[in-house]
Computed example of a mutant assay.
Amino acid sequence: MKNKTEGRELEILVDGLSFLEQVRCWELEHCPEPALAGEYAAYTALFTTMLERCNSGQIAEIAVLNCTCGDAFCWPLEAQMETTDQHVIWSRFVQPHRRDTWTYEGFGPFIFEEENS
Protein backbone atom coordinates (compact mmCIF):
# COMPACT_ATOMS: atom_id res chain seq x y z
CA MET A 1 0.00 0.00 0.00
CA LYS A 2 1.18 3.46 -0.80
CA ASN A 3 0.29 6.26 1.62
CA LYS A 4 -0.57 9.59 0.00
CA THR A 5 0.30 12.27 2.52
CA GLU A 6 -1.87 15.02 1.10
CA GLY A 7 -5.44 14.43 2.28
CA ARG A 8 -4.22 11.42 4.29
CA GLU A 9 -5.71 8.98 1.80
CA LEU A 10 -4.35 5.55 1.04
CA GLU A 11 -3.88 4.38 -2.50
CA ILE A 12 -3.72 0.60 -2.60
CA LEU A 13 -1.31 -0.69 -5.24
CA VAL A 14 -1.04 -4.32 -6.30
CA ASP A 15 2.06 -5.06 -8.37
CA GLY A 16 2.35 -1.33 -9.01
CA LEU A 17 -1.24 -1.01 -10.31
CA SER A 18 -4.11 0.78 -8.60
CA PHE A 19 -6.32 -1.71 -6.76
CA LEU A 20 -9.31 0.59 -7.31
CA GLU A 21 -8.68 0.58 -11.07
CA GLN A 22 -8.38 -3.23 -11.04
CA VAL A 23 -11.76 -3.42 -9.26
CA ARG A 24 -13.28 -0.97 -11.75
CA CYS A 25 -12.08 -3.03 -14.73
CA TRP A 26 -13.36 -6.27 -13.17
CA GLU A 27 -16.77 -4.78 -12.41
CA LEU A 28 -17.10 -3.29 -15.90
CA GLU A 29 -16.53 -6.72 -17.41
CA HIS A 30 -18.34 -8.97 -14.90
CA CYS A 31 -21.09 -6.99 -13.17
CA PRO A 32 -24.45 -6.09 -14.77
CA GLU A 33 -24.50 -2.40 -13.73
CA PRO A 34 -21.50 -0.76 -15.47
CA ALA A 35 -22.51 2.75 -14.36
CA LEU A 36 -21.68 1.72 -10.78
CA ALA A 37 -18.38 -0.02 -11.60
CA GLY A 38 -15.52 1.19 -9.43
CA GLU A 39 -17.60 3.73 -7.53
CA TYR A 40 -15.46 3.55 -4.43
CA ALA A 41 -13.28 5.99 -2.53
CA ALA A 42 -9.72 5.73 -1.25
CA TYR A 43 -9.30 4.95 2.40
CA THR A 44 -8.08 7.26 5.12
CA ALA A 45 -5.42 6.49 7.70
CA LEU A 46 -8.15 4.71 9.75
CA PHE A 47 -7.84 1.78 7.31
CA THR A 48 -4.18 1.35 8.28
CA THR A 49 -5.15 1.31 11.96
CA MET A 50 -7.74 -1.41 11.25
CA LEU A 51 -5.14 -3.55 9.47
CA GLU A 52 -2.58 -3.08 12.24
CA ARG A 53 -5.04 -4.45 14.82
CA CYS A 54 -5.38 -7.80 13.06
CA ASN A 55 -3.28 -10.54 14.61
CA SER A 56 -1.52 -13.35 12.81
CA GLY A 57 -3.80 -16.29 12.22
CA GLN A 58 -6.96 -14.18 12.13
CA ILE A 59 -9.56 -14.34 9.39
CA ALA A 60 -11.94 -11.39 9.20
CA GLU A 61 -14.45 -9.85 6.83
CA ILE A 62 -13.41 -6.28 6.04
CA ALA A 63 -14.41 -3.49 3.70
CA VAL A 64 -11.41 -3.03 1.39
CA LEU A 65 -13.00 -0.06 -0.39
CA ASN A 66 -15.64 2.43 0.73
CA CYS A 67 -18.39 4.47 -0.92
CA THR A 68 -17.44 7.84 -2.38
CA CYS A 69 -19.85 9.47 0.12
CA GLY A 70 -17.63 8.36 3.02
CA ASP A 71 -20.25 6.17 4.70
CA ALA A 72 -18.64 2.78 5.35
CA PHE A 73 -21.96 0.94 5.04
CA CYS A 74 -23.33 2.72 1.98
CA TRP A 75 -21.43 0.98 -0.85
CA PRO A 76 -18.45 -1.06 0.42
CA LEU A 77 -16.46 -3.70 -1.38
CA GLU A 78 -15.89 -6.42 1.18
CA ALA A 79 -13.35 -9.23 1.28
CA GLN A 80 -12.12 -11.95 3.56
CA MET A 81 -8.77 -10.98 5.04
CA GLU A 82 -6.46 -13.65 6.42
CA THR A 83 -3.27 -12.77 8.24
CA THR A 84 -0.25 -14.98 8.75
CA ASP A 85 3.21 -14.23 10.12
CA GLN A 86 4.37 -13.42 6.59
CA HIS A 87 1.31 -12.40 4.54
CA VAL A 88 -2.01 -10.61 4.43
CA ILE A 89 -4.41 -12.27 1.97
CA TRP A 90 -7.56 -10.68 0.52
CA SER A 91 -10.03 -13.07 -1.12
CA ARG A 92 -13.76 -13.86 -1.48
CA PHE A 93 -14.78 -10.38 -2.57
CA VAL A 94 -18.42 -9.33 -2.38
CA GLN A 95 -20.52 -6.23 -3.01
CA PRO A 96 -23.04 -6.73 -0.17
CA HIS A 97 -25.77 -4.65 -1.82
CA ARG A 98 -25.54 -6.73 -5.03
CA ARG A 99 -24.66 -10.10 -3.51
CA ASP A 100 -27.09 -11.99 -5.78
CA THR A 101 -26.15 -10.35 -9.09
CA TRP A 102 -22.50 -9.22 -8.89
CA THR A 103 -19.82 -11.91 -8.91
CA TYR A 104 -16.15 -11.66 -8.03
CA GLU A 105 -15.37 -15.32 -8.65
CA GLY A 106 -11.88 -15.35 -10.16
CA PHE A 107 -10.96 -11.90 -8.77
CA GLY A 108 -7.98 -12.33 -6.49
CA PRO A 109 -6.75 -13.53 -4.15
CA PHE A 110 -4.36 -10.68 -3.47
CA ILE A 111 -1.38 -11.59 -1.30
CA PHE A 112 0.63 -8.89 0.44
CA GLU A 113 3.91 -9.51 2.20
CA GLU A 114 3.92 -8.57 5.86
CA GLU A 115 6.38 -5.78 6.64
CA ASN A 116 8.33 -5.87 9.87
CA SER A 117 8.51 -2.43 11.44
Rank of each mutant, 00 (worst) to 15 (best):
W102Q: 06
E114L: 12
F93H: 03
A60W: 00
L20V: 05
R24D: 04
V88H: 02
E27Y: 08
A41C: 14
Y40K: 00
N66Q: 05
W75P: 10
T48K: 08
L77N: 00
A35R: 09
N55V: 12
Q58E: 11
L46Q: 13
I12D: 00
I59F: 05
L51K: 01
P76W: 02
N66G: 04
E11S: 00
K4D: 03
W26Q: 06
D85R: 13
Q95N: 15
W90I: 12
W90V: 06
T84L: 13
C54V: 13
F110V: 05
G106V: 03
L36A: 11
L65P: 06
S117G: 14
V64D: 00
T68R: 12
I12H: 00
L77H: 01
C31H: 06
S56M: 07
E29D: 12
E82N: 11
E27A: 09
E114Q: 04
E9S: 03
P109I: 05
M81G: 02
Y40I: 07
P76M: 03
W102E: 04
T103E: 03
Y40H: 06
R98D: 07
C25H: 14
H30Q: 10
D71I: 08
K2T: 07
P96H: 04
R8L: 08
T83R: 14
E27M: 08
L46N: 13
Q80I: 11
M81H: 03
W26R: 06
N116P: 08
E78Q: 09
Q58S: 13
R53S: 14
T84C: 15
C54G: 09
T84P: 13
Q22M: 12
A63C: 13
G38L: 04
V14H: 02
R98A: 14
F112W: 08
F47S: 02
L46D: 13
R98P: 07
Q95A: 13
H87R: 02
S18P: 15
L17F: 14
C54I: 11
E39R: 10
T44N: 08
I89E: 00
Q95L: 09
L20G: 03
G108N: 05
R8H: 05
G108M: 02
T84M: 09
I111M: 04
A79G: 08
D71G: 11
A35D: 12
D15C: 13
L36K: 15
L28G: 13
S56Q: 10
M81P: 10
D15N: 14
E61H: 12
D85W: 03
I89D: 05
E11Y: 00
S91D: 01
D71N: 15
T49N: 07
Y43P: 02
D71L: 09
T49D: 07
L17W: 08
F112C: 08
V88G: 01
